[in-house]
Amino acid sequence: MEAFVTLDAVAVPLPLPNIDTDQIIPARFLSRPREVNHADFLFHDARRVAATGEQNPEFPLNREPWRAARVIVAGKNFACGSSREAAVWALFDAGFRCAIAPSFGDIFRNNGTKNGLLPVVLPAAVVEDILAQLEASPGARIFVDLPQQQVTAPDGSVHGFEIDPFAKHCMLNGLDDFGVTAAYEDDIAAFERRYGRENRI
Protein backbone atom coordinates (compact mmCIF):
# COMPACT_ATOMS: atom_id res chain seq x y z
CA MET A 1 0.00 0.00 0.00
CA GLU A 2 1.16 3.55 -0.75
CA ALA A 3 2.06 5.39 2.45
CA PHE A 4 0.28 8.61 3.39
CA VAL A 5 2.04 11.24 5.47
CA THR A 6 1.08 14.72 4.34
CA LEU A 7 -0.75 16.06 1.33
CA ASP A 8 -1.02 19.60 -0.06
CA ALA A 9 -3.49 19.50 -2.92
CA VAL A 10 -6.41 21.03 -4.76
CA ALA A 11 -9.71 20.00 -3.22
CA VAL A 12 -12.97 19.51 -5.11
CA PRO A 13 -16.33 20.19 -3.41
CA LEU A 14 -19.27 17.78 -3.84
CA PRO A 15 -21.80 19.36 -1.50
CA LEU A 16 -24.35 16.53 -1.41
CA PRO A 17 -25.24 14.03 1.32
CA ASN A 18 -25.50 10.25 0.80
CA ILE A 19 -23.26 10.03 -2.29
CA ASP A 20 -23.34 6.24 -2.59
CA THR A 21 -20.74 3.87 -3.99
CA ASP A 22 -23.06 3.04 -6.92
CA GLN A 23 -22.58 6.65 -8.03
CA ILE A 24 -18.85 6.57 -7.36
CA ILE A 25 -18.51 3.52 -9.60
CA PRO A 26 -21.52 1.98 -11.35
CA ALA A 27 -21.93 -1.78 -10.90
CA ARG A 28 -21.26 -2.67 -14.52
CA PHE A 29 -17.56 -1.87 -14.06
CA LEU A 30 -17.10 -4.18 -11.08
CA SER A 31 -15.86 -7.20 -13.02
CA ARG A 32 -12.54 -5.48 -13.78
CA PRO A 33 -9.46 -6.76 -11.89
CA ARG A 34 -7.40 -4.35 -9.79
CA GLU A 35 -4.69 -4.09 -12.47
CA VAL A 36 -7.10 -2.18 -14.72
CA ASN A 37 -6.91 1.59 -14.28
CA HIS A 38 -10.24 2.56 -12.68
CA ALA A 39 -9.91 6.34 -13.10
CA ASP A 40 -12.35 6.55 -16.00
CA PHE A 41 -15.06 4.70 -14.04
CA LEU A 42 -15.08 7.34 -11.28
CA PHE A 43 -18.55 8.93 -11.20
CA HIS A 44 -18.89 7.47 -14.68
CA ASP A 45 -22.59 8.21 -15.15
CA ALA A 46 -22.83 11.32 -13.00
CA ARG A 47 -20.08 13.11 -14.91
CA ARG A 48 -21.58 12.42 -18.32
CA VAL A 49 -24.62 13.78 -20.13
CA ALA A 50 -27.05 10.84 -20.20
CA ALA A 51 -28.36 11.46 -23.72
CA THR A 52 -25.01 11.84 -25.51
CA GLY A 53 -22.52 10.12 -23.21
CA GLU A 54 -20.29 13.20 -23.41
CA GLN A 55 -18.54 14.72 -20.42
CA ASN A 56 -20.82 17.11 -18.61
CA PRO A 57 -18.84 20.37 -18.30
CA GLU A 58 -20.89 21.27 -15.21
CA PHE A 59 -19.75 18.32 -13.14
CA PRO A 60 -17.07 19.58 -10.70
CA LEU A 61 -14.57 16.84 -11.53
CA ASN A 62 -14.74 17.88 -15.21
CA ARG A 63 -13.97 21.53 -14.50
CA GLU A 64 -10.51 22.91 -14.97
CA PRO A 65 -9.13 23.90 -11.60
CA TRP A 66 -10.63 20.73 -10.12
CA ARG A 67 -9.31 18.27 -12.65
CA ALA A 68 -6.10 18.29 -10.63
CA ALA A 69 -7.91 17.67 -7.34
CA ARG A 70 -6.52 15.04 -5.00
CA VAL A 71 -8.85 15.76 -2.08
CA ILE A 72 -12.61 15.33 -2.28
CA VAL A 73 -14.91 17.12 0.17
CA ALA A 74 -18.50 15.87 0.39
CA GLY A 75 -21.69 15.91 2.43
CA LYS A 76 -22.57 13.45 5.16
CA ASN A 77 -22.65 9.67 4.68
CA PHE A 78 -20.16 9.83 1.81
CA ALA A 79 -19.64 6.50 0.02
CA CYS A 80 -22.50 4.74 1.76
CA GLY A 81 -23.98 1.55 0.41
CA SER A 82 -22.19 -1.27 -1.34
CA SER A 83 -18.93 -2.71 0.01
CA ARG A 84 -17.30 -2.50 -3.44
CA GLU A 85 -13.62 -1.71 -2.89
CA ALA A 86 -13.55 -0.52 -6.49
CA ALA A 87 -15.06 2.75 -5.19
CA VAL A 88 -11.73 3.40 -3.46
CA TRP A 89 -9.73 2.22 -6.48
CA ALA A 90 -11.61 4.57 -8.79
CA LEU A 91 -10.88 7.53 -6.50
CA PHE A 92 -7.28 6.44 -6.00
CA ASP A 93 -6.59 5.87 -9.69
CA ALA A 94 -8.04 9.30 -10.47
CA GLY A 95 -5.45 10.78 -8.12
CA PHE A 96 -7.42 11.17 -4.89
CA ARG A 97 -5.62 10.41 -1.64
CA CYS A 98 -8.01 11.96 0.88
CA ALA A 99 -11.77 12.33 1.33
CA ILE A 100 -13.29 14.73 3.86
CA ALA A 101 -16.90 14.45 5.05
CA PRO A 102 -19.01 14.70 8.22
CA SER A 103 -19.48 10.91 8.06
CA PHE A 104 -18.69 7.95 5.80
CA GLY A 105 -20.11 4.56 5.00
CA ASP A 106 -18.30 2.32 7.51
CA ILE A 107 -17.08 -0.22 4.96
CA PHE A 108 -15.72 2.46 2.63
CA ARG A 109 -13.83 3.97 5.53
CA ASN A 110 -12.10 0.65 6.19
CA ASN A 111 -11.46 0.04 2.50
CA GLY A 112 -9.91 3.50 2.25
CA THR A 113 -7.36 3.08 5.00
CA LYS A 114 -6.37 -0.29 3.54
CA ASN A 115 -5.74 1.23 0.10
CA GLY A 116 -3.95 4.51 0.79
CA LEU A 117 -7.01 6.77 0.69
CA LEU A 118 -7.37 8.70 3.94
CA PRO A 119 -10.95 9.24 5.17
CA VAL A 120 -11.17 12.36 7.36
CA VAL A 121 -14.27 13.00 9.47
CA LEU A 122 -14.83 16.64 10.44
CA PRO A 123 -17.86 18.23 12.12
CA ALA A 124 -20.71 19.05 9.72
CA ALA A 125 -20.35 22.81 10.28
CA VAL A 126 -16.63 22.70 9.47
CA VAL A 127 -17.22 20.69 6.30
CA GLU A 128 -19.93 23.12 5.25
CA ASP A 129 -17.54 25.98 5.78
CA ILE A 130 -14.77 24.30 3.78
CA LEU A 131 -17.24 23.52 0.97
CA ALA A 132 -18.18 27.20 0.82
CA GLN A 133 -14.51 28.22 0.61
CA LEU A 134 -13.82 25.72 -2.17
CA GLU A 135 -16.80 26.94 -4.17
CA ALA A 136 -15.89 30.59 -3.63
CA SER A 137 -12.34 30.07 -4.89
CA PRO A 138 -12.14 27.12 -7.26
CA GLY A 139 -8.73 25.50 -7.19
CA ALA A 140 -8.12 26.30 -3.53
CA ARG A 141 -5.85 23.86 -1.70
CA ILE A 142 -6.13 21.88 1.48
CA PHE A 143 -3.23 20.66 3.58
CA VAL A 144 -3.63 17.30 5.29
CA ASP A 145 -1.17 16.27 8.00
CA LEU A 146 -1.66 12.70 9.18
CA PRO A 147 1.04 12.62 11.91
CA GLN A 148 -0.51 15.74 13.49
CA GLN A 149 -4.06 14.62 12.58
CA GLN A 150 -4.84 18.06 11.21
CA VAL A 151 -6.44 19.57 8.15
CA THR A 152 -5.65 23.15 7.11
CA ALA A 153 -8.54 24.71 5.20
CA PRO A 154 -8.00 27.25 2.37
CA ASP A 155 -8.67 30.11 4.82
CA GLY A 156 -5.83 28.88 7.04
CA SER A 157 -8.07 27.53 9.78
CA VAL A 158 -6.76 24.30 11.28
CA HIS A 159 -9.01 21.40 12.24
CA GLY A 160 -8.01 18.29 14.17
CA PHE A 161 -9.45 14.91 13.29
CA GLU A 162 -9.65 11.49 14.90
CA ILE A 163 -8.28 8.36 13.32
CA ASP A 164 -7.91 4.87 14.64
CA PRO A 165 -4.28 4.55 15.86
CA PHE A 166 -3.86 1.21 14.09
CA ALA A 167 -5.14 2.59 10.77
CA LYS A 168 -2.90 5.63 11.20
CA HIS A 169 0.16 3.48 11.83
CA CYS A 170 -0.58 1.33 8.76
CA MET A 171 -1.18 4.36 6.53
CA LEU A 172 1.89 6.26 7.68
CA ASN A 173 4.10 3.27 6.98
CA GLY A 174 2.29 1.86 3.98
CA LEU A 175 1.71 -1.41 5.88
CA ASP A 176 -1.13 -3.79 5.43
CA ASP A 177 -2.84 -6.08 7.94
CA PHE A 178 -1.28 -9.28 6.64
CA GLY A 179 2.13 -8.49 8.05
CA VAL A 180 0.71 -7.38 11.38
CA THR A 181 -1.47 -10.47 11.76
CA ALA A 182 1.43 -12.85 11.07
CA ALA A 183 2.85 -11.88 14.47
CA TYR A 184 -0.27 -13.30 16.14
CA GLU A 185 -0.05 -16.80 14.65
CA ASP A 186 0.27 -18.52 18.03
CA ASP A 187 -2.80 -16.71 19.38
CA ILE A 188 -4.84 -17.71 16.35
CA ALA A 189 -3.76 -21.34 16.58
CA ALA A 190 -4.62 -21.42 20.30
CA PHE A 191 -7.98 -19.84 19.62
CA GLU A 192 -8.74 -22.41 16.93
CA ARG A 193 -8.09 -25.30 19.29
CA ARG A 194 -10.47 -23.77 21.84
CA TYR A 195 -13.14 -22.63 19.42
CA GLY A 196 -13.14 -25.86 17.46
CA ARG A 197 -13.99 -27.74 20.65
CA GLU A 198 -16.63 -25.40 21.95
CA ASN A 199 -18.44 -24.54 18.79
CA ARG A 200 -18.93 -27.32 16.31
CA ILE A 201 -20.16 -25.49 13.29
Binding site: E85, V88, I107, K114, N115, T181, I188
Partner: peptide, 15 residues
Protein backbone atom coordinates in the same frame (compact mmCIF):
# COMPACT_ATOMS: atom_id res chain seq x y z
CA UNK B 1 -19.94 -7.04 5.10
CA UNK B 2 -16.26 -6.40 4.35
CA UNK B 3 -14.22 -5.11 1.41
CA UNK B 4 -12.13 -7.32 -0.84
CA UNK B 5 -8.80 -6.64 0.90
CA UNK B 6 -10.47 -7.76 4.12
CA UNK B 7 -11.88 -10.83 2.34
CA UNK B 8 -8.35 -11.76 1.30
CA UNK B 9 -7.19 -11.31 4.90
CA UNK B 10 -9.99 -13.52 6.21
CA UNK B 11 -9.22 -16.16 3.59
CA UNK B 12 -5.56 -16.22 4.58
CA UNK B 13 -5.91 -15.94 8.36
CA UNK B 14 -9.59 -16.68 9.16
CA UNK B 15 -9.40 -13.50 11.26
Amino acid sequence: GIGSTEVAHVLATQT
